[in-house]
Nucleic acid binder design. Structure first.
Length: 448
RNA sequence: GCGGGCGUAGCUCAAUUUGGUUAGAGCACUCCCCUGUCACGGGAGAGGUUGCCGGUUCAAGUCCGGUCGCCCGCGCCA
């Protein structure tokens, strides 16, 4: 008999069908046995009736996570046994035959819907099994939507998708620590960002984006840092102002939120997650304005600091939420020397640049801005930043040949997932997280 | 890297404040009961070198020192 997916069972009332899946929990009533069977499309109650003694005997053996092939008749449940709270709560499968596809060891912890409550360490040490829990599946289904909808929105706006390289030559930029690799006896590095490549591709394709892994060797042990992350990158030419980049970034995030709301409503409900509020026009403040507001509201003087720290980000979000109802706020105008060489300095006040960050619920979601597009100015910047132009020759070459005003932005898929769902730790939003102390397994001081 | 917190059964946690009999509970596991359960219910059982090393004390899960591990905050962070 051909397999029926559990989501389609309700169309087969009165018929005999075959379904396959995993046992959730057996409810043994003595003379009759119930269990829920789960496949990738949902779950349904199966019942071994007293008239079928052989089936009862078999069903008494089952434990959670056994994989079964079940044949049975789809019955409407008797009125008093209808459960309106759950999927397929008005039907059940009267088992006629069972084939065990695979037995399961006793579970090392409670994987039931209600009892599920694990330390993050336990979760990560048992990733394979934990991924069977609907809450974890919901997290990663939502992440899938985030990445898909980024891609969709980019394509709708005529951005060209390219594959950014992960292996790069000597890094020209300062800043974050990089992973060095042995490349046929020579040094190479894992990419920290497709930044220079997306600017090169932009110079030819006008608009481009990439979805790619980036690697950071920062010794950062926090709830929002990983060494390997999925970066969603975009770059666009022929802008009139950095605000064009801001607007595109805002609409991208808006589209992602809308799609998650449409496609993952059940997952959001299961996770008890509330999407952040994005109002018609996300407030935009300069760094100086942010610092002034924090001073006025909280009396904490961070005026003149070169960047925001985590406390500033939490406080400005609180202020903006109270003033406008928005969970989002753009901050622009950072000190030029604090940011990379390619960020465009404000012509009226070159000490500050036209870089921006989008902050939501106290955490940075996205950063971007206008870039330096004039070749001569770019060479000046390279000199000022004490960089070796030879190391970024291919990048500089692109700008020799007529690159119009341009800009772009990038966001981290894991961090957005974490923030949308208000998870406490980015590792919860990462299917196989890598950090300083863990690559699947905990790393010990002697190496692997 | 700095600061704070935590480490008790397979999992999640009590008992630590104020040292005192045999370290408890829920879930999971084994066995029994249950003809309508809803990631059930009832009964019984098994499961512990309280992370590790040392100290104080008549007595240490509890206090002290060290050590290892984890978590959180800060720093760092295109």
């Amino acid at each position: 008999m051909k397999r029926t997916y559990i989501k389609d069972i309700e169309e087969n009332v009165g018929k005999e069908i075959s379904i396959s899946g995993w046992v959730n929990t057996r409810r043994d009533q003595g003379k009759m046995v119930f269990f829920d069977l789960r496949d990738m499309t949902g779950s349904v109650q199966c019942v071994a009736l007293p008239s079928r003694e052989e089936i009862i005997e078999k069903a008494k053996e089952f434990r959670s996570e056994w994989a079964l092939k079940v044949s049975g008749i789809v019955n409407k449940r008797p009125g008093k046994n209808i459960n309106t709270e759950i999927q397929n709560g008005d039907i059940e499968i009267e088992i006629t035959d069972i084939f065990v596809l695979a037995e399961a060891e006793p579970l090392p912890f409670d994987l039931s819907l209600n009892g599920y409550n694990l330390d993050l360490t336990t979760e990560l040490d048992n990733r394979a099994l934990v991924l069977r829990h609907p809450k974890n599946q919901a997290i990663f289904r939502i992440q899938e939507t985030v990445i898909d909808s980024f891609r969709e929105f980019m394509k709708k706006n005529m951005f060209f998708e390219f594959q950014a390289p992960s292996i790069t030559p000597a890094t020209a930029e300062g800043g974050a620590e990089v992973f060095q690799i042995d490349y046929f006896g020579k040094k190479a590095f894992l990419t920290q960002s497709p930044q220079l490549y997306k600017q090169i591709v932009m110079s030819a394709f006008e608009r481009c984006f990439s979805v790619n892994k980036v690697f950071r060797a920062e010794p950062s042990s926090t709830t929002r840092h990983l060494t390997e992350v999925v970066s969603l990158d975009a770059e666009m030419a022929f802008i009139d102002s950095w605000t064009d980049v801001r607007d595109m970034a805002e609409e991208t995030v808006r589209y992602i939120l809308e799609q998650v709301k449409i496609k993952n409503s059940e997952h959001l409900k299961l996770l008890e997650a509330n999407l952040p509020v994005m109002i018609d026009r996300t407030p935009t403040l300069s760094l100086k304005e942010v610092q002034q507001k924090i001073f006025e509201e909280f009396g904490r003087n961070v005026r003149g600091e070169k960047d925001t720290n985590p406390q500033d980000e939490r406080e400005i979000c609180e202020i903006i939420k109270k003033e406008t109802g928005s969970d989002f706020v753009f901050i622009y105008g950072y000190p030029s020397r604090k940011k990379p060489f390619y960020v465009y300095p404000n012509p009226e006040d070159p000490e500050f640049n036209e870089g921006m960050d989008l902050i939501c619920r106290g955490v940075e979601w996205l950063s971007g801005g206008r870039r330096v597009n004039d070749y001569r100015q770019l060479l000046e910047q390279v000199k000022t930043w004490n960089m070796d132009p030879k190391k970024i020759e291919m990048f500089l070459e692109a700008f020799k040949y007529g690159v119009p005003p341009e800009g772009g932005f990038a966001l981290g898929a894991e961090r957005i997932t974490m923030q949308i769902l208000e998870l406490k730790n980015i590792r919860e939003a990462t299917i196989f997280p890598r950090d300083m102390n863990r690559i699947d397994e905990k790393l010990n001081s002697e190496g692997f």
